Simulated assay, not measured.
Amino acid sequence: MTHSIKIQALSIEGFAPFGEVICTTGHDFFHINDAHTERYHALVETEISGDAVAGISIFRNIKTTELPFTISMLERHPNGSQAFIPMQAQAFLVVVAPALDDHSPDLTQLCAFITDGSQGVNYRAGTWHHPLLTLEAPSSFAVIDRIGIGHNCDVFQFPTPIYISN
């Protein structure tokens, strides 16, 4: 039997167990540059373990996700956080699960979120998540994550697919 998850709107509170929402709404700011700019300071702290640095890359999705859909895997990065910031104000889907143990996600607590196009996300180190799922293509994202040596990507294949719907 296929398990089913409903997509919910991404919020700071709802996403808190998995990481941070990168946005201006709901965060404090202060003025800089002669009060021409609002600075939303240190919304996320990049986590990095081992012989590595923080790097900024661009991921460009060229394939769209049609609703509803199924997923059959999650991945995690145990030695560093990973932030995704949309560059074209396009909504995207976020599917996450907490760790059950050192090797697998807790699929009974799987959550699916949709961003509003102005929000990015930062997955904490070790957070199980699905790779990018975009509703439009192409979609480009600035990605801030760990660049370094050593293993930093675990993949978990589900015994049966999970259905995601709106």
Rank of each mutant, 00 (worst) to 15 (best):
Y163P: 03
S4N: 00
F113Y: 15
L67A: 11
H41W: 02
F156D: 08
Y163D: 07
M1W: 07
K63P: 02
T46I: 03
N33K: 05
A52M: 00
S57M: 05
T25W: 00
G150W: 01
H130F: 14
S140Q: 13
S4L: 02
L100H: 13
A9R: 12
I58K: 05
H130I: 08
F113S: 12
C23G: 01
K6C: 11
R39D: 05
N122D: 09
E20A: 14
I147V: 15
E66M: 11
T37E: 09
H27L: 00
A52Q: 00
Q88V: 10
R146Y: 02
P17A: 10
S165E: 13
C111D: 03
I62Y: 03
I149K: 13
H27Y: 13
G148Q: 06
I162C: 09
H151V: 02
L135G: 12
L67G: 12
E47M: 07
A112F: 06
P86M: 01
H77Q: 11
L43Y: 03
A16K: 11
H41F: 08
Y40S: 02
C111Y: 01
T24A: 05
P78Q: 12
I48Y: 05
L10I: 07
H41T: 07
T25L: 00
T70F: 06
M1F: 13
F59A: 15
H129E: 02
L107Y: 04
P131D: 06
A52T: 01
D51K: 11
A35V: 12
C153G: 14
P17V: 06
I147M: 13
G120Q: 14
M73V: 08
L107Q: 04
S118R: 11
G19C: 03
E13Q: 15
D102F: 07
F84A: 07
G55C: 01
L93D: 04
N166T: 07
S11A: 04
V96G: 11
L74S: 14
S139P: 01
S49T: 05
T108H: 08
A112I: 05
G14M: 07
H31C: 09
I144A: 10
N79V: 10
F30M: 09
I62G: 13
E136W: 06
A142C: 03
I71H: 08
D34V: 01
S104H: 10
L74A: 12
G117D: 10
I71A: 05
V95H: 08
C153W: 02
V121H: 04
S165W: 02
F69P: 00
I144R: 03
D116I: 12
T115H: 09
T70C: 07
G26P: 00
F158E: 11
M87G: 15
T115E: 06
A42C: 07
V95M: 14
M73L: 09
L135P: 05
S4I: 08
A91F: 03
T24D: 04
S11V: 10
I22W: 10
G55Q: 04
G126Y: 10
S104Q: 15
L110I: 14
F84V: 03
A97C: 11
V44E: 00
G120D: 04
H27M: 06
Q82V: 05
P105D: 15
S165F: 06
P86Y: 09
T2Y: 00
P86D: 08
T115I: 10
Q157R: 13
I164G: 04
S11F: 00
P159Q: 13
R39A: 10
